[in-house]
Nucleic acid binder design. Structure first.
Lengths: 237, 237
DNA sequence: GAGTTTCCTTGACCAAGGTCAATTTTAGGC
DNA sequence: GCCTAAAATTGACCTTGGTCAAGGAAACTC
């Protein structure tokens, strides 16, 4: 799959001029694991497009704890929402594995949104979708236990209309998955073992296999307000 | 304070025609406590404006648990985000005390957003603000303990630039505050007592008094990634 | 103002997840 | 392949918040 700015859903209503302007101001860089692109509260002048690799968005409290906002794969943009508020980044961004990033001026995006109503509408759709995901995230944190959250995470990685045997590969470290799900690595490890015992999945390192998704669905989706398959995933395609 | 559609921040860029159209299709109703306006998954045809009272937005899982999405006071609208997605309500809405509600067709709003870019931009701002609040909510659920969350809730009710003695009145039942904060009523009760012991606040029924906000700030905001005073509150004014 | 209902608090107990420490496993570098 | 560092697992223990049950306080009805 080709990850290019011109193909992301958000920009489907944009014309050549816009892309040319954007591309003329683009900077491409390859960053190593651990590199921090910006921190929460920095003045926001550019937004970012992930060409390859993974990026972690997070925030830190005064007393040193860390909350992971999201972990984004290639094809996603981030840092773009600052233009609607105070022009400060609402989270920090860190590279979690070697990643190729294109940075672009927020001013170009802002100008286009102000003049291209279709882009504004596309942005509204994308924010509405994100909003629902966040609402669901909050729900899951309070109503699902650790094993159910892992099950849900796995289901969202799978092709949900698949009926037969399924093999799912974790996209990044278990430690990182744990933080993404708001739990400790030790808890993740134990909860995954419990999920195995409850549903009969087979764990082989970072790969998880099962005869069908059914067991996982009935275990995890019981503590969710939405139906399986998850609608928000289809919408995002 | 007068709560009218014409004065809400979201519609500040709208003209007389729009309001007249909207008002000609408006239905005003007074609902008693417990009344359910719509449930999660219903076809969304109208959005709602709260003229007076309080409304709870929530979702229910298959196995019967409930997650409170938000509890909204007069002056707020809800049910408006469905237009950007599948035209289904993403939560259920229930009246929590006698409330005067104006319902309005989503189609009018949709038409206006598609034609009035300023409204689209205002909507983007409002969604961006909401998004940050939700991000913070997720952070708080995983990094703050029950007492800290209550302290944070109280601080958000107070005028945050106040320096002297402060008196805060809970806007609704403690049971409802508990659910809003994602905890059980028993936990709320115990955690509030713990907060009293830690910070020296004085609890008199639904009213909470203190000599200054400082104690609460240093107790609760230590486990938050944002500075006190909370910026998102100022932006909302 | 008595009685009922709803809300709030408290106690005893339990379960889930966090913490700390010790291994074991895996992945990279040379 | 060997060595090292990082990641993952496991055990023992503890803290937090949930559950169930009982009692007390406040609010509403008549």
């Amino acid at each position: 799959m080709d990850h290019s700015l011109r193909h992301i859903a958000l920009f489907k209503a944009c014309e050549k001029d816009f892309f040319e302007k954007l591309e003329s101001h683009a900077q491409t860089q390859t960053h190593p694991k651990g590199k921090v692109l910006f921190v929460h509260g920095d003045a926001a002048e550019r937004f970012y497009f992930i060409k390859s690799g993974w990026v972690k968005l997070f925030r830190e409290t005064l007393d040193g704890a860390q909350a992971v906002v999201d972990i984004l794969p290639a094809g996603h943009i981030f840092g773009e929402t600052s233009i609607f508020e105070d022009d400060l980044y609402p989270y920090s961004a860190e590279i979690v594995e070697p990643t190729e990033i294109i940075s672009l001026p927020l001013s170009d995006l802002k100008t286009e949104i102000e003049n291209n109503n279709k882009l504004a509408l596309a942005m509204l759709s994308s924010m509405a979708r994100y909003r629902r995901q966040q609402d669901k995230e909050i729900e899951h944190r309070s109503l699902q236990n650790a094993s159910q959250r892992i099950g849900c995470f796995l289901l969202r990685l799978a092709r949900q209309n698949e009926t037969g045997a399924v093999s799912i590969h974790l996209p990044y470290d278990k430690t990182l998955v744990a933080s993404r799900l708001g739990m400790q690595p030790e808890t993740f490890s134990r909860a995954l073992a419990k999920l195995r015992d409850k549903t009969g999945i087979r764990i082989k390192g970072a790969t998880i296999e099962m005869d069908s998704l059914d067991q996982l669905v009935s275990y995890s989706c019981a503590a969710c307000s939405s139906e399986f398959p998850c609608k928000d995933l289809q919408a995002a395609e």
